[in-house]
């Protein structure tokens, strides 16, 4: 029995480390490699032929249609500016400027099932005098620009900027995407 102890240690350690690390690096741990812009995080390099093996594995596992870098960039937000989880029964404001683009969209979805419950696009928006956006994200109808959360408990926002070169230029790390502030719950 004692002879089996050490080989067993090797096998158990290898399996736990091998599969555990793989699962972590494709799920929660993937956030560690994301580029962050305030509350938004994403992988601007994802849509290129030179993506790293982790991103390839992530794409295969997620099953999503890839978005080429020349087409656009997608960011996700799961927390507000105060680092609290986004909730569908709260009211948030999204204010600021978007980097150069042809079109942008914001989706609200369930972070687990990925079911989309509402979306808005730049073509429907009212903009401020300097091109700034002021969008209210809430379960009840709001004046001005409004995105319905459908009252979900936990939500995730997806911001997609189409035809933007802002993230491939030098100094792109200085870009400020619109902030997400909780107003009330």
């Amino acid at each position: 029995m004692k002879q089996l102890f050490y080989p067993l240690i090797v096998v158990v350690t290898a399996l736990v480390v091998g599969f555990g690390l793989s699962y972590y690096s494709l799920e929660d741990g993937r956030e560690l490699t994301a580029t962050h812009y305030g509350v938004w995080s994403g992988w601007p390099e994802l849509g290129t032929a030179q993506i790293d093996p982790y991103s390839r594995a992530h794409l295969a596992r997620q099953g999503m249609l890839p978005l080429g870098k020349g087409e656009g960039v997608r960011f996700a937000a799961r927390k507000d500016a105060e680092d609290n989880w986004l909730r569908g029964d709260c009211r948030y404001t999204m204010q600021g400027h978007m980097p150069n683009h042809a079109l942008w969209t914001v989706q609200v979805r369930n972070p687990v099932t990925r079911q989309v419950y509402g979306h808005v696009e730049s073509g429907q928006m009212l903009f401020g005098p300097n091109g700034e956006i002021d969008l209210t994200i809430a379960p009840q109808v709001q004046p001005g620009n409004w995105l319905n959360t459908d009252g979900l408990e936990r939500i995730e926002l997806l911001l997609t900027l189409y035809d933007t070169n802002a993230f491939s230029k030098l100094g792109s790390e200085e870009i400020a995407l619109p902030q997400l502030v909780k107003e009330a719950c």
Binding site: I9, T13, A14, G18, F19, L21, S25, L26
Partner: peptide, 22 residues
């Protein structure tokens, strides 16, 4: 020493999984 061997083997499994998933 045996634990270290497990870690190295785990690393190989991890890299194989990441490369083979697609």
């Amino acid at each position: 020493l045996w634990f270290l061997a497990g870690l190295i083997l785990g690393g190989i499994i991890h890299l194989s999984v990441i490369l083979l998933v697609p």
